[in-house]
Design a protein around this nucleic acid. Sequence first.
DNA 1: CCAAGATTTATAATAATTATTGATTAATAA
DNA 2: TTATTAATCAATAATTATTATAAATCTTGG
Lengths: 136, 136
Amino acid sequence: MITSEKIERLKEKGHTPTIQRMAVLEFMEGNLSHPSVEEVYQGLKAKYPSLSMATVYATLELLRDLGLLRELTILRSKVCYDSVIHAHHHFFCKVCGRVFDISVDCAIPKKDLINGNKVDEFQAYIYGTCSGCLSA
Amino acid sequence: MITSEKIERLKEKGHTPTIQRMAVLEFMEGNLSHPSVEEVYQGLKAKYPSLSMATVYATLELLRDLGLLRELTILRSKVCYDSVIHAHHHFFCKVCGRVFDISVDCAIPKKDLINGNKVDEFQAYIYGTCSGCLSA
DNA sequence: CCAAGATTTATAATAATTATTGATTAATAA
DNA sequence: TTATTAATCAATAATTATTATAAATCTTGG
């Protein structure tokens, strides 16, 4: 989904496309580094000096609620975000600390029922050592 | 795995089976409620009044590192633990806030390589509404 | 333009986690 | 057993992440 479509989604749901929200969307667009709230804030404050952390928190949560971002709780005490919405999973390298996207077949259905429980979202986290750190 | 085997694992790795560690192990043994650090502490302080949160944190992390407990980061800003080690996944109900064990077939292998990355652990989190809350 | 409501900012408050340090306890060797 | 050393624990302080609040600012429809 490109940014303009995301702006439409915002408007549809009655949220104004403010400069701050556009900035966060643009920052996240195509960003594969799975930034934390702090990292989003740091990445934007040079261009938007008046931006506050509270706004970054609120914006990321709003975008998550609208389904425009995925929220990852891979790490203890540190949430991060992903702009890639389509089904994929995450690999966390215990050595370098990076989060990689990974494609793995998994039979768990999306938006369906499992044992009578309604599934909204599915996240698979794989913890280990990445190929780069293995060879180093 | 029964507690006596877990005690052996502790000793093998050079850690003393202290009263505090035994207390945490016993508390977690067969506990399917996925307690948080705070809940483990609250569950033990009546019997062990001198126990401190720092010890509970350290003990849970040690047991996790030894593979005797699983650490779940299902929730933003709240870690919880599971004494059930064998492969299974977790369902988090957004309505009642409870965490349920769930058995789902998933092709992701354990202790193996994926795309050249070494897999230590795999966690699948399913978010949604549980059957109980659906019918209510 | 003006009013109503939404949003942002700045800051304070809260909650979770981590670090530190001295005291206590356990393990080991004489 | 006792002395020595290392490991562990408890209490507290410090840090970090997150949430709440209230005033200022912006947006939008009339």
